[in-house]
Amino acid sequence: METLEQIKKRIEAAVPGAKIDIVNNGSPSAQHSLKIDNEHARDVARFLRDDPALRFDFCSNVTGVDWLDRVIKKTVKTKQVVDGVEKDVDLTSEEKIPGYLEAVYHLFSIAHKHGPVIIRMQTGRANAQLSSLTPIWRSAELQEREIFDLYGIKFEGHPDLRRILMWDEFEDFPMRKDYRPPDDFEWEPTPHDDVLERAKQHYPARPTETELKPS
């Protein structure tokens, strides 16, 4: 199989305007992935499926990942002159990464028996929306519904986007990292108006950012 760099170059040549980044994976599994942009997602996916050398006809696993706001601290050692004496000083810089939701697709090729190639798409946590790849790979149908149900990513172009594991009246997205279950599941909303009204008091407010940080 071609390396990810080669695949990236081929995609960029075939799909004009597509922005592809290689996301490195530090673990010994060395399963690096391609981050693709939302706009050209379906074209890139179609290329990966139909290109005769790649032929990723089998989309095995589709899943969501929730990333909260993160602060990455970098420490750089520099030399500074303090009181006329040169000293080694640690300079820490903080990079703030706003939270995002991610959809990850694991692709294999049954025709050429290679893989996996991992593609991922990112979207903001509020108003999360991505283009659905179900028209390309039918296997994403139930799995994208599951992501919609548990993570709240709306998949544009999905033929039948409904809740799948939770019940239709359920409001929150349980797999998000800031999900707090209601204190009393007896008061989960049902279609009845009076129960809906009374259920409200059992729903906790979403936690603030400081509450989420591990102490």
Binding site: S27, S29, N61
Partner: peptide, 10 residues
């Protein structure tokens, strides 16, 4: 505690 990263095994 495994190292930071991800893996898909099947």
């Amino acid at each position: 505690k495994p190292p930071v990263g991800e893996a898909y095994g099947r």
